[in-house]
Write a protein that binds this DNA or RNA. Sequence first.
DNA 1: AGGCTGGATGATACCGGTGTCAACAATGCA
DNA 2: TGCATTGTTGACACCGGTATCATCCAGCCT
Lengths: 350, 350
Amino acid sequence: MTDPSPLPGADHARHAEPTIEDVAAAAGVSIRTVSRVLNKSPKVNAQTRERIEAAIAALHFRPSLRARALAMRRSFLIGLIHNDRNALVLDSIQRGIVSVTAEQGYELIVHSTPLAGDAAIADVIGFAGRSRVDGLIVLPPISGVAGLAGALDGAQVPAVAVSSVPLDGFAGVILSDERGAGAQVARHLLDLGHRRLGLVNGPTTMASARERRAGFIGEAAGTADASVAETAGDYGFASGMAAAQALLAGPDRPTAIFAANDIMAAGVLKVAARMGLGVPDQLSVVGFDGSMLAQMLTPALTSVLRPFDAIAAAATRHLIARIEGTALPAPFHPTLAIVPAETTGPAPKS
Amino acid sequence: MTDPSPLPGADHARHAEPTIEDVAAAAGVSIRTVSRVLNKSPKVNAQTRERIEAAIAALHFRPSLRARALAMRRSFLIGLIHNDRNALVLDSIQRGIVSVTAEQGYELIVHSTPLAGDAAIADVIGFAGRSRVDGLIVLPPISGVAGLAGALDGAQVPAVAVSSVPLDGFAGVILSDERGAGAQVARHLLDLGHRRLGLVNGPTTMASARERRAGFIGEAAGTADASVAETAGDYGFASGMAAAQALLAGPDRPTAIFAANDIMAAGVLKVAARMGLGVPDQLSVVGFDGSMLAQMLTPALTSVLRPFDAIAAAATRHLIARIEGTALPAPFHPTLAIVPAETTGPAPKS
DNA sequence: AGGCTGGATGATACCGGTGTCAACAATGCA
DNA sequence: TGCATTGTTGACACCGGTATCATCCAGCCT
């Protein structure tokens, strides 16, 4: 059949994986027909199909992702971009992504960039071009970098952001009620009798942080004698401590503090301890994310649980649908629920 | 040159990335010569090389990883396998890996398996076969699964374990002095005057945990009136709490507890707080890993710092050297140093 | 019976690179 | 000047799949 040329360079092949040709020979058909079976084409005789499937099983044949990718001009690779140094939830997110990619025939390729700003954009575009991913999943905080979505769009790379709210340029895939969650927290604290509230904001560049703030402040405004003292935070531990120090310095310090993520809340707890403030007796604290950190802190942190694995899975499904041009799934509305733990209690009498 | 056949199926190409052929045309050479430049072959005239490199730069050409992979029968993909649900350090590890893969022309592909035991082995082998990775990096705890190394070996997949000590079947790539670190912890506590020591072990199936224990107990044995009470742990938070409850129940409770990782140490702190034991006044606690959790706890946890990013980078370098058949780098000996924080202090008088 | 129709299958080009080997020019040496 | 040698370069097959198109074979119609 083929040219009887001596095979060149000897066979230093490590894998010796069977190829589609081996399957075709075993089943007595052409490779094209095997290919049809692999792609579930309906135009194959039932008996032929069975014969081929038997051969595939017997040989433990797995089609080479890269040969297929080359021919189809698609890589079946989904890229994940992250640059968070405090990625408490990275594991859940990857688990959620892989659960979907595995069932849809994709693989997850990860790029963790140490850069920020425009350099990060260049790095991401370079990664996408190099690895030829079919699509990209972008995590905060890099997903909030201005211009990233536009750059990806320009490079024709489908991308979704694992973000709770629509991000500039990114499609709104996950629509969680951050505002409502912020309101829930305020309501929880108000119901416990707190009136002087403290807020440690997330980065104001992030829409989700702004939403949480709006919900929290809006709910508090509904109670006449309630007030909110705000401080800036950047989701980092140090910023949580700094914010707490600022909030707790004066005489009319808040009796409850809401931090926009668990990490900053941990910083608040540390400052409270140093100041000798009992939690929750003298100060209540609420975090956000429901990460494992919340449970591991002492006292256990009251926090708003976000189902990261489900969120990541939904983002992945959306991305794959976009890549394949199939019907887009409806936006995913995760439930954000406050999980009361040990850091919230009735407001002190004083 | 080529057949003037009408291009089929129209061009629904999304990327429109330039190919090696475009570069060759722009530089007025054959694709083979461009390929030589890409592979840094010395057999190219300096002027020709410059011309080609200029064309590459002008066209923003990036060679397609998958075409190259197909031709070279290598994927340039390195797989990372993890199954830890409490991956506090996953981020550092991925950052360390990517810092090396990026500079060596590889990409990182991640598989997170929800399975355990033999099913996990099958899952990993399936992943390796499907994605055709050139090599695999395996994280604990799945790296400790009996038979995994053998299975990978049988499948001809080069693999390294990011493990501190030689693991059954895996090459000893990282050789950290876990025993010495365990001894350091004991010494620290003995120097502070503690004599009744508690130990929350890691899984006894893990060599690194056994080493830490041996070092800790060995060092304590050198002090006549010192004693060590041991309990079992599985690196999980709940097991840390359970162990602490067991250790602290009796009348002659230890005045210092060493937990084999930070997560279990957090559990110990929580139990101590519930029992009203002041830390470090009545009880000292030491963790292991030096994760960000240690700093975020209150009081800040004394822990043994492990440079996970450097460890992961070293493992990656070793793996790539194995893949490419170049000289293996010397085993990496990371320094494990105890970082005193707020959870250790002088033994109580009593 | 002959032509038409549609389903099943195969031959062959192609995806974008690399490996092999031959062709060719320039150089060194006798 | 003739010839071997070295340095550059290109033609072509190939990696393992998929896409296009042609072919073959029944079954059906007039």
